[in-house]
Amino acid sequence: MKMGEVDIEATTEPLLKVEDLAVDFHVSGTVQRALQGVSLNLKRGRTLGLVGESGCGKSVTSLSIMRLLPQPPGHYAGGRILLEGRDLLSLPEREMRALRGGRIGMIFQEPMTSLNPVYTCGEQIVESLLVHSGLSSKAAMDRAVELLDLVGLPSPRERAHDYPHQLSGGQRQRVMIALALANDPDLLIADEPTTALDVTIQAQILDLMTDLRERTGAAVLLVTHDLGVVAQTCDDVVVMYAGGVVERAPTNALFADPQHPYTIGLMAAVPRIDATVDRLSTIAGSVPPPWVTLVGCRFASRCPLADDRCRSAVPPLRENGPDHAVACWHAPIEEATI
């Protein structure tokens, strides 16, 4: 059921377009690959999940979009990051600074380290509002309280005068979200926003993010390692492995019809709360370290189907279904493939 290559970009122009992004790290005289040929599209009002295991490059991708990658050691080695057609990689830092916290909102994993401990929650939101929107300080404070209310913080007027350490982890993450939403961003980048939180608090925060996305119409890029979070919140998914995209699909299609051997292995390895198996399925071996030069498919060293072609030629990301692209020479895997 292989289809020809379809240009899905032609339908509606995405808000964010990452094309062929490559990032290297220059570490003590050596060049280590962090990203190779990463492409993704994100439309308004959609949530895109960027999923993969540690070291796959998902956080480097999100940091690159915000241009927050420390340089050096980071180095943009190629590609483009287009926000409504403007290439973020060529913007001067001053303009980039206006985008961050303005049109691009950011939520990080650990709200304790990303909030400033010596300012109250209200002051931090006010600062962002003053810098980006030119409100008066009084109006900004009112707006800050309004935002804290929006993210479901109880008694927001009092909480605005609290310092981050006076709040619980879940409340801090709510403040972080209020801060990210302060200037009505078009794009919200959330890097593992619930990983440090307990499961009941995680459910609250994910609920809140879904609710806010529906209300504001912002596009959300959700970076996570958790397939459960992806399944519950994302419209589309990009699966990354060892610095590259191995599969890209609408969420339902990815879970119903996973194509890449890595995606299949990953999904089968997740223990389920709603079903039992005798033995968990595993993926043999481990991720190739970043200093190893990859020839051919990046998953070849762990793939049971790998043959000579896989080890010598990089499989392109090919459309294998509606909006469903996979970088595997053997896809779709059926009995007949081997």
Binding site: Q202, A203, L206, L227, G228, V230, N252, F255, D274
Partner: peptide, 18 residues
């Protein structure tokens, strides 16, 4: 606790209030 655990199954999205 059981309700809050995210299921890796997009056809079974939890719409209940946590």
């Amino acid at each position: 606790l059981i309700a809050a655990a995210p299921r890796p199954d997009p056809t079974n999205r939890d719409r209940s209030k946590p």
